[in-house]
């Protein structure tokens, strides 16, 4: 019944998510960030591993009537039912087109609930020190918390809560 979770390194996302949570609890002097990176419309984004419960392959999403456009519908996660939001739509991008690399990132919501976020692809886990990150350019400050260097480019670290909030408010 459950779709297999997969990562490029062969470890399970659950382990990574849990380890991320543990590391945050330890709070060492130089904060080390563990981020899941993913793609939306070709651009790289990231979210804290601690917020991610699991990552699942695309599966039939049951549409729900009379909800904001950003809500694609609901899915069953081993019996639990969770709403799935199209992260592209939340950011005002063109709606997602299903592809083999599409994934649903399941994050911990408020009060223990969960929520799914549809993305084009999930890349890898980025581990950097907090002081390596840069502030986002002005204008994007609301949704993007920081820019994280990876190789010779940057990954935008998103404030998922804010992204979802704004995404639900969009009407077009």
């Amino acid at each position: 019944m459950s779709a297999p979770t997969e990562t490029p390194t062969g470890a399970s996302w659950e382990e990574l998510a849990r380890s991320g949570a543990a590391q945050e609890a330890e709070a060492p002097a130089a904060r080390r960030l563990e981020l899941v990176t993913f793609e939306l419309d070709g651009d790289p984004f990231a979210a804290p591993v601690a917020q991610v419960r699991e990552i699942v392959r695309l599966r039939p999403i049951t549409p729900v009537p009379r909800v904001p456009d950003a809500v694609r519908g609901v899915i069953s996660l081993r019996g639990e039912i969770a709403q799935v939001l199209d992260l592209r739509r939340c950011l005002g991008l063109k709606p997602a087109v299903a592809s083999r690399s599409s994934r649903i990132i399941v994050i911990h919501g408020e009060e223990g609930g969960v929520c799914g976020l549809l993305v084009d692809a999930v890349r890898d886990v980025l581990r950097i020190d907090e002081d390596e990150t840069l502030a986002p350019p002005p204008g994007e400050g609301d949704l993007v918390v920081a820019l994280c260097p990876r190789g010779d480019s940057f990954v935008s670290l998103l404030d998922l809560e804010r992204v979802i909030e704004l995404g639900l408010a969009r009407t077009s």
């Binding site: 049951t62 729900v64 009537p65 904001p68 609901v74 039912i81 709403q83 939001l85 929520c115």
Partner: peptide, 28 residues
């Protein structure tokens, strides 16, 4: 088994919850 729908959208008018009928798909 009617399960609550978890997620940011709170009030789903006309929907009491969702269930899984055994093939992995959520049914409202």
């Amino acid at each position: 088994v009617i399960k609550p729908i978890q997620g940011p959208v709170a009030d789903l008018r006309g929907i009491a919850g969702a269930t899984e009928l055994g093939d992995g798909e959520a049914v409202l």
